[in-house]
Design a protein around this nucleic acid. Structure first.
Lengths: 217, 217
DNA sequence: TAACTTTGTAACTGCGCGTTACCATGTCTG
DNA sequence: CAGACATGGTAACGCGCAGTTACAAAGTTA
């Protein structure tokens, strides 16, 4: 309990927790109730000992001779990540990518709800995506102040990325997911996460040209 | 250059190369011709010494007292990654996400061209996305055999992910990008890359709750 | 020529990861 | 009930990568 407050948690651990959670939720959906670190290791491609050690950073959740209770572990990981309560998202950009994000099933599953969508294309204003009507970009600040939104997603053309990011940060957003390939700057205290599909493609491309039979997961 | 064949390149290096490339192409677009490791380090948030050392794995590209010639460095990195020639992509799933991927500007910039799009929704067959008409899923194998496609993108609903992956792999695809949250299996020799936006969200969420002192675990 | 800039590279450190090992604790079988 | 078996918790070790510092070599500029 207190360990996470005092002890420094390695970055890699925090990166793996969502992967564990993802698999655990799938297993729970299949009606499985317990899982061993060995089995979880197969499913996530993580060393079983590593999984056990990762979890001990936050306490001791398993039962020896049995494994981990999936429902309980899901709850614990969600609590660790802060995914045990709902989070509102603001989405900027109502194009194909924005629509894809807004309609993404997985978001709701983890308690994320897109509650505001912005675009500066007049033809898109008022259009409903899911249950949310697209608002003009000018209303961004007022809307975000009214609601309590701390997470923003940038899915606009590259040239608009920095401007949108600045406005989100100024409006109190604390986490920004950038889906454009440009590097944007954020003020201190704002967490930025970049997701560029092309960079991932280029990365895997290296191994394609090497054609090494070694599996790369 | 030959070193890359004999020497083992650390995984981290391969991950950073696309980031360098991305910035370099942006700089080139701005008309800049040379860049120092210090400047490139600022723009990519990577330590300058690390950049220099990364590049020495593949040879010595810089000029002392000057820096790196951007046009040359772009070419070299592209060659290292295998992005110096065109790659055809097959896209499965013509929904919002698929459309976003097919229309993504950054793909063409790096020599990627979506040359086939598949979907099993009858209302989507024949619809053009960009210049490509959506084909029924049944034609996947024949189309891929005809063209020489080694990269596939899976942007379908979760329940269809494994099936589509299997068919792509069987049709000779060597690199698969999975945009669904489910874990799919691939045969030996096929490189799999998973991109789940929700997992990235959950990851950043951890730091959001820490900063705000929310109780946990 | 002299001062300055920047790369290439070596050396050192810290640390996360993978692995091994072993005990504690639970289940299962006969 | 007793013993065999399965599994988590935890410690210890080694490896390799990242970050840093340092500095000589090579080029530029004045």
């Amino acid at each position: 309990m207190d360990r996470a407050m005092t002890e420094r948690i390695p970055e890699g651990v925090i990166e793996r927790l969502p992967a564990y959670l993802n698999i655990l939720i799938q297993l729970r959906g299949d009606g499985v109730t317990t899982v061993s670190s060995a089995r979880l290791g197969e499913l996530t491609a993580v060393n079983p000992a590593q999984i056990r050690r990762d979890l001990t950073h936050f306490g001791s959740f398993g039962k020896r001779g049995v494994g981990y209770d999936i429902a309980m572990l899901v709850e614990r990981i969600q609590r660790i990540l802060g995914a045990d309560h709902a989070h509102r998202l603001a989405l900027v950009g109502a194009g194909n990518l924005g629509s894809a994000i807004a309609g993404y099933e997985g978001l709701r599953q983890h308690g994320f709800t897109v509650t505001a969508i912005f675009d500066n294309d007049p033809t898109k204003i008022g259009v409903r995506i899911g249950e949310i009507a697209v608002q003009p970009l000018e209303e961004l600040e007022d809307t975000l102040r009214g609601q309590d939104i701390r997470i923003g997603i940038v899915a606009v053309p590259s040239e608009a990325a920095q401007g949108v990011t600045d406005r989100l940060a100024a409006a109190g957003v604390r986490v920004i997911l950038n889906y454009t390939p440009v590097i944007v700057r954020v003020p201190q205290g704002v967490t930025l996460h970049n997701t560029d599909p092309v960079q991932e493609l280029l990365h895997t491309l290296y191994y394609l040209s090497r054609r090494e039979g070694v599996a790369h997961v």
